[in-house]
Amino acid sequence: MDKTFPSPNMPLIETSGLSKQFGSVQALADLNLQVMPGEIYGLLGPNGAGKTTSIKIITGLIEPTSGWVKVAGFDPVKNPIEAKSRIGYVAENPILYESLSPREFLEFVASMRRIDQSMANQRVTQLADAFDMGQYFDSPIATLSMGMKQKVALVASLVHQPPILLLDEPLNGLDAKSSRIAKDLVSLHAKRGGAVLFSTHIMEVAEHVCTRIGIIHKGEVIAEGTLDQLRSKTGGKSGTLEEVLLKLTNEETQVADATRMLGEAIFR
């Protein structure tokens, strides 16, 4: 790790009473999270539950209405440089500099992060090679597909070997090979003592990758724990994560009703 942790027993990501109000909409309400070194914390929930807002607040992209965040012991609002230099971030929709090529974009990111030339070369070469970026490494990002852009964002998030990874739907558009590599990298990162906050809609991924899962619904974490702990909260000992999520968010009945109604309306 490039950046030292405050303490191995201290959470790398910590939020307390975090809330965010968008006009009349409460996007986040009293979010309390702790992600310890070595953990991959999966943030799951329906669309608009507040996953992206949470990650953006932790990244320092938006400020919370109330509550606080600590990233490796630093407040992203008060100490943005310290906090951001310890974060690797992949956005839900990678917004990059479209007229730059991946090479130029990574040069920019590595320069901003003050990575040593030889170290940056070594890391970029390994990551770009693993993600098969050869065909488009010098093409403008504007011309790349979403999956390709996602790979660029992933490499940019890993190039400085940060202790914390904030990944918002990082597997969007990735092919099977790259998706597998990304998941393996996330696991390796955690094994080496890093912390990962992982948001995804793919339940199978969360089930296999995350060591702990938080279910967020209407801006609140309504359940948290390992898959078994979540299952027990729904009163069962089996069931997929998808079933558990739907039960916890009270959407199981809604899904059944919608399917029945659509079946009657469309496939008559």
């Binding site: 040069e107 590595a110 320069s111 901003m112 070369n121 970029v124 010098d138």
Partner: peptide, 30 residues
């Protein structure tokens, strides 16, 4: 868009200030 096969992934890092200047020059000139 055309694609050129490339296996040279070397990058050139700069001092953050000049890195930002270079980025500004590139994006605005394109």
């Amino acid at each position: 868009a055309s694609r050129v096969a490339n296996q040279d992934f070397s990058i050139r890092t700069r001092n953050p200030f000049f890195g930002y200047v270079m980025k500004d020059l590139k994006i605005s000139s394109r």
